[in-house]
Design a protein around this nucleic acid. Sequence first.
DNA 1: CATTATGACGCT
DNA 2: AGCGTCAT
Length: 468
Amino acid sequence: MPVARPEQQQPRVIAHVDMDCFYVQVEQRRNPALRGQPTAVVQYNDWKGGGLIAVSYEARGFGVKRSMRGDEAKRVCPGINLVQVPVARDKADLNLYRSAGSEVVAILASKGKCERASIDEVYLDLTDAAKEMLLQAPPDSPEEIFMEAAKSNILGLPSDASEKEKNVRAWLCRSDADYQDKLLACGAIIVAQLRVRVLEETQFTCSAGIAHNKMLAKLVSGMHKPAQQTVVPSSSVQDFLASLPVKKMKQLGGKLGSSLQDDLGVETIGDLLSFTKEKLQEQYGVNTGTWLWKIARGISGEEVEDRLLPKSHGCGKTFPGPKALKNSTSVKGWLDQLCDELSERIQSDLNQNKRIAQTLTLHARASKENERDLAKKFPSKSCPLRYGTGKIQEDAMKLFESGLQDFLESQNTGWIITSLSVTASKIFDIPSGTSSILRYIKGHSPAASPAIPDSSSVPEDPSLGDVP
DNA sequence: CATTATGACGCT
DNA sequence: AGCGTCAT
């Protein structure tokens, strides 16, 4: 459940940057013939043409949607180009998009605190940079506002007018603005510059929201897409939230949002204002109740974390329908493939970023062969992570066997596996100092805690770059 | 048994 | 540690 963070006092300048149909853009850069064409990226294509995971704006114009099947997309948009996600080890391989995302992050991290929120989204805290601009080079004439910034959308400014760009230029350098708005205007200019740099250096367009907190920045980053940005002045917040459907708010797209609608009759964020903090806390607990009360007022103290890299690495695959795995041999084969990819990814993380993962977790979905036991879930299992492909494969298989025992509860029924995944987590930076490395090895050596009780494994030499 | 593959995070 | 929710 969402939790309210203590709110900041000083005004901050926060941006949320969101790449436009990112996987499509990555494929369009690889094959420029796809530019400006209705295009989608699909995962696999043997069953109903594959599943769409990204759709270009041209294709969206035909009604093509994410999660449609390739066949369906072809029906509504016969001219659509369907590009397949690369396949490696018989599974979808997203590394191409991960590295493209890293290119973008490297640029966006140059002007302030930057948080990688997903493969194609970041949050920026531009407070310091905005203050700096206000002191050193405040925008003061409409003519000097460069084009990308002048194309901003400012919430609360009349957007229909033919005068729009003029109004925006005027707003961005308004001398009678309060301090908050001036900071926001500087933030908008900085973000426009960053977006131009991203385009120049990667060929990717993105959209952005600029506001005083993460919640508001995220809410509007997608409001004007593609390749545009939207600013949320404080004065526009209440009206904006008043009519915002609850389901549009981050964290309210699921069961909590449904409960607000069904149990409290709340349809918009504005409707939340009629409930006291105590009433919301009584209904949803102190944490969630307080959070709801605050977001209704546009308050969100969540900070931008200084983090450019993911906190975990996972590899998984589903085995739907007749593809379900029915014996340990096929599970072993797939687990080996997943672990091979995972091993490669954590080894790269170690080599490139000097980070080490400490926990290996196995997840699976299973059913008992023809039984009615739908509720029973396959338990997830974890153990200390030992580097080396063979060791990861070995440990993952042991985790699977352990989970399977719990799942079957010593019954002798058949089983099928419909999904498998392995995840490496609890990733830490390796201390750089020589003596700290020694300290690090002493305290964290896997030898101190065997991966699996009674493991009879033989030491092996990882083929691809071990710890130096 | 067909919205995949991946991630973050809160609760217990 | 393991489970559930949410997002895209």
